[in-house]
Design a protein around this nucleic acid. Structure first.
Lengths: 338, 338
DNA sequence: CTGTTAGCGCCTTCAC
DNA sequence: GTGAAGGCGCTAACAG
């Protein structure tokens, strides 16, 4: 308890000048003489002075922290996203408070509350797959804490978000399968209530229509994204009278689970195309033949840039309520010939 | 900018009492009359009063934040570890500042610095695979910021750490292979400089000796843990005059890479046992037959508990320089018969 | 160019 | 039981 880290006061004392002079010297304020500046800075480095962030935050009524809530970190998709977020945030001197909702709505709400009580300046969220109730997000709005959603977007009006264009991705997937002579293309979608599922479905119909193919509702089934759920969905397709020769899945994990399942069931010659393009597929013999790359790192970067921009604006004046959003292009990554 | 969140001052004003009374009422101080307490609390909840953490941190010279540096989050191993850390930290009202070193020493150093300048109360680290230089850790010590290492431990004297008992795990792996009639057991180790590699090697020799097997140095090769590195290591084993019939690998990823590699090379009947027991293996047809479970969630919990304990002590009095550490038992998880 | 002063929100003596 | 006052480290408005 003897050697606290030195404060401006200490520097001021040793130099026989006032604290405010020290403060300004360190901020390179124009009104301070070069001589004094040098003296201050010299002593500061000698003493290993470091500003007390806590005091600064307190004073400036800003924490320079942004909260990030993602469903989980173990999917490479989200891990990359985090990296993109961190890279941008650190560059601008913001700290990232990272949390996992584990895809549970309850935990997501708790986390939103925790972040709020920690007075984060802004929040980035990919909503959990359970989330159907948006009151916690509205709470943030009411507290005037800017929020940018990314990749998994709630159905709310006037929100800021960054996502990838599922419509484009789906079209790419469909085009690829059709050009590889697949005739009956099925869709294993995610939970019905998810906006992401609804978008995929819409894009699926749209995509088939573009190619003058008939849309057959019996070729669309739903998984809760658990392993069992995906297998059941797959079985449903197998039981149908029109067995598909290609399947587009909600994401790579669904595809992997299904591939595993049909292999056990000795079913062959069904091709899979999925979303996310997880690197995990590189370890598999049995991977989807193609996957829609959604550029999570880029999404993270863009979302963070947008958020920081909002924070700047907010500091300046009343935030004009213009909701900003962007849909990033996707790219179909082909793992092997169809 | 009109409606700031309410402060004690505001409550005091509305109730025509002093701020200190409000403060004490909220802390349930004994010297405050029950009536006043109730009045204060009622108004506080009505106004949605929430203490300004920043002010409290500032005042208490504590940030209630712990920094966590892990190599990456996309390995399930570390993601689980984080969950364990978060669960304990949140329970005690600490916030977790999570960072990825991406297994780069340079970034690790930067992060240590960033955490220090943010005045985190303590730090948890799993060191990067590149880290050979420990000066940034010593820096933390000098600043009296408690550090607990977990799973990947540097070779420094008197440090606190939690890890899993690689010796036990290795013995379990060897016993399992031998009881499954394997004769020539090889080891694909990680980079030589890593303490974790050195421990595995030592345990490997020890384990063979326990079973009265001869230790053959030509059956130990090294990978830099990249995919290519692992394949080269595998090839080295294949080229040896004594081709092994079983291989123990540094971790699951190495095993997966090798399995893929030998499958392409049409090599069969080499069994793999690895470390970490990553869930990713559940997706594979070609997985190691067993893996040493290292309980990352538990490690995270224990390490955090230890760190928070250290923080308590530190607040109390001079920290007795007793280095605390614990080795957790491992468990061999068998994926299929050997 | 530099010093003085005040205050951010909260806690904590000390006094009544 | 309660109030008044001071201070944590730093910034910024106001005086020179």
């Amino acid at each position: 308890m003897s050697d606290h880290s030195p404060t401006m006061k200490e520097i001021a004392r040793q130099l026989n000048i006032s604290v405010s002079t020290v403060s300004r010297a360190l901020q390179d304020h124009y009104s301070i003489g070069l001589r004094t500046k040098m003296r201050v800075r010299k002593l500061a480095t000698e003493l290993n002075y470091e500003p007390n962030q806590a005091a600064i935050f307190f004073k400036q009524k800003k924490t320079f922290m942004i909260g990030v809530i993602l469903p989980n970190l173990s999917q490479d998709f989200f891990a990359s996203m985090v990296t993109g977020i961190e890279d941008v945030a650190y560059k601008k001197n913001y700290t990232v408070l990272l949390c996992q909702s584990r895809d549970e709505q309850e935990r997501e709400k708790q986390l939103v509350n925790a972040l709020r009580s920690h007075r984060v300046d802004g929040v980035l969220i990919s909503i959990s797959k359970e989330t159907t109730d948006y009151e916690h997000f509205e709470l943030l709005q009411r507290h005037k804490i800017p929020v940018v959603f990314l990749d998994r977007i709630p159905k709310m009006p006037d929100i800021h978000y960054i996502a990838s264009s599922l419509a484009t991705g789906m079209q790419q997937a469909i085009d690829f399968l059709i050009s590889n002579k697949h005739k009956r293309i099925a869709l294993i979608n995610g939970p019905r209530h998810l906006p992401a599922s609804q978008e995929r479905l819409e894009a699926f119909r749209q995509g088939l229509w573009q190619k003058r193919r008939k849309y057959d509702p019996s070729l669309v089934v739903y998984s809760d994204l658990s392993r069992d759920g995906s297998c059941m969905a797959m079985q449903e397709l197998l039981d149908g009278k029109q067995r598909p020769d290609a399947v587009i899945t909600f994401n790579d994990y669904v595809a992997l689970d299904c591939l595993r399942y049909i292999k056990k069931a000795k079913v062959e010659d069904i091709s899979f195309v999925s979303f996310a393009n997880e690197p995990i597929c590189n370890y598999m013999d049995n991977a989807p033949i193609a996957s829609v790359e959604q550029f999570p790192y880029l999404q993270g970067e863009k979302a963070t840039e947008l958020l920081l921009q909002l924070l700047d604006k907010q500091a300046g004046q009343a935030s004009d309520h213009v909701a900003h959003h962007e849909l990033l292009q996707t790219r179909l990554v082909v793992h092997r010939p169809g």
